[in-house]
Amino acid sequence: MSKLSQKHLLGIKDITEKDINLIFETAENFKEVINRPIKKVPSLRDITIANIFFENSTRTRLSFELAEKRLSADVVNFSASTSSVKKGETLLDTVNNILAMKVDMVVMRHSSPGAPHFLSRHISANIINAGDGTHEHPTQALLDAFSIREKLGGVGGKKVAIIGDILHSRVALSNIFALKKLGAEVMVCGPPTLLPKYINELGVKVELDVKKALQWCDVANVLRIQLERQQIRYFPSLREYSLYYGINKRLLDSLHRQIVIMHPGPINRGVELSSDVADSDHSIILDQVENGVAVRMAVLYLLAGAAG
């Protein structure tokens, strides 16, 4: 069995292009599997996986859980808000308590950047980062790149614009790392207050005008405006944001060419995307969701192989 170069999937920054391609090839097989009448394979029988979510999540947790179950793993779920945990147990104690019950792999979401990296220095189980604060969300970037590859036949040489709150987005950062590794050109676009000052040093273009970004790109990956992560006001109102950074059908029609629209969900309809765009044939948003399960199956399967 082929293996990943890493024991954990902490971030895209740490893995190689070869790893990414191996994940994609494996995910293609699993995508075929989950479209069969019998969607389950025995690959991870006897493997126990804990989904530990210190931050709210519906779709990522569901996607991981489905991926785990389709691989026949035993699954346990733990959810707690970081704030309630903060009052009592430390992160390390919480996770060690779960691992003491003989868990092989941990899928963790946490609000602190680097929390899975911290954990990886202290525990022996495989760790998959399901989002660490404003740092990385590697499986999202993998499924995004996988979806681009599926739709456009490849990622190399493609122009991808990531639009919205780049400053607080782990999706943006992981996407930048993944797309650059796969040879795509990347642009970020959003209000200047939501663009990291040194983002251009990651080798991406910076654009402040949404229409120009859309004219440039083959793919627009539109991010959710994350009001919950903004303890400081970065823009005056959602109204003004949707007027000047939102994407609607009229704007897309004015481009006179077809581009692909992506969104990691959940969509704020009428804010960053209008319904007539989200539901149009430009959109591959639901393909992303389907691919998410296949890509996560591939990651789990390959990491289990690396462990065994």
């Binding site: 950047p113 680097g114 604060g133 404003t134 740092h135 990385e136 040194y198 040093e201 990651l202």
Partner: peptide
């Protein structure tokens, strides 16, 4: 705040 903080997702 710099390219390192940007890559680590940490507020600068």
């Amino acid at each position: 705040e710099g390219v390192q903080s940007t890559m680590l997702g940490l507020k600068g």
